[in-house]
């Protein structure tokens, strides 16, 4: 038992972990020869030699493999489309059970109707078709609008996400849609919906009020991914007006370090 106690002390001495009392005890033991000085030195030499062994240097493969791993995992969790990979089946089930399915079905039906009309329409195609097609196309677009407004308020994030994605297919940038997108961007509890909203709003950045809205949104976001997406967008748009907001975010202590790095980069590009 005694020797174990000594061994413990010696190790603590070697790692520099002796408190005052232990230090005294230790020095006494060495002085009296209870801990032989020669052995102590030998152990110390071995300990130091071991701890100063240089660490094997990894090649570039180490980082590369990790980055690959991270990218794959992020894809699983944050897909670019409306489908979540591991929850594919689950999501299909959701859509099946979703109350908005009916509205969606109508859109499909209408599209089918349009195709059938084109295929089987009467002989005087040239004159009659154009206005008819136009009418159907308008109705289709209106249906999409209805679908959008229905889905955007659904309790399931999956539906709201679909709404945002549908808005990207709409050719006319209705101010109501844009307002709804901003509402999603600033208020939706689900980060994926907010990110999709950024994507959708990219299509409307020719409008100054959209750019202004996006700039204002920067300070309202606390999700790092959305912050980065917005910083990226500002950078791509060369939107200098965004710099004050970005600076504010930079100064905020609670902002994530990686986001701060991104913001610094964006500010540098913009200035």
């Amino acid at each position: 038992m005694n020797s174990e106690r000594y061994e413990e002390l010696i190790l603590d001495y070697l790692t520099g972990n002796l408190d005052e009392v232990q230090q005294q005890e230790f020095e006494t033991l060495v002085a009296t020869g209870a801990i032989p000085a020669a052995e102590l030195e030998a152990t110390q030499a071995a300990y130091q030699a071991f701890h100063t062994l240089p660490d094997p240097e990894p090649g570039p493969g180490l980082d590369a493999k990790f980055n690959q791993l991270l990218a794959t995992e992020k894809q699983k969790v944050m897909p670019s489309g409306p489908a979540f990979s591991w929850g594919d089946l689950w999501q299909q089930l959701n859509i099946f059970l979703s109350p908005a399915k009916f509205a969606y079905t109508l859109v499909i039906f209408f599209t089918g109707f349009l195709v059938a009309w084109l295929a089987f329409s009467p002989k005087q195609r040239q004159q009659q078709q154009d206005p008819d097609v136009k009418m159907l196309a308008t109705e289709l677009s209106q249906m999409k609008q209805v679908l959008f407004t229905t889905l955007i308020d659904q309790p399931l994030a999956v539906d709201r996400l679909q709404a945002v994605n549908i808005s990207q297919e709409m050719t006319n940038a209705d101010s109501r849609v844009i307002d709804a997108l901003f509402n999603s961007l600033n208020n939706d509890p689900n980060v994926n919906v907010r990110l999709a909203a950024v994507e959708a709003l990219k299509n409307h950045t020719s409008k100054p009020e959209v750019r202004a809205g996006l700039i204002l949104s920067i300070s309202k976001q606390d999700s790092p991914m959305v912050q980065i997406a917005l910083a990226d967008l500002m950078q791509a748009l060369q939107e200098k007006e965004a710099v004050p907001q970005l600076k504010q975010l930079l100064q905020d202590e609670s902002t994530n370090e990686l986001v701060k790095d991104k913001i610094k980069e964006s500010i540098n590009v913009l200035i």
């Binding site: 174990e4 061994e7 413990e8 190790l11 603590d12 152990t43 071995a46 300990y47 071991f50």
Partner: peptide, 8 residues
């Protein structure tokens, strides 16, 4: 600690 000591 004892085991590390002995291993060293």
């Amino acid at each position: 600690k004892v085991r590390v000591f002995r291993a060293i």
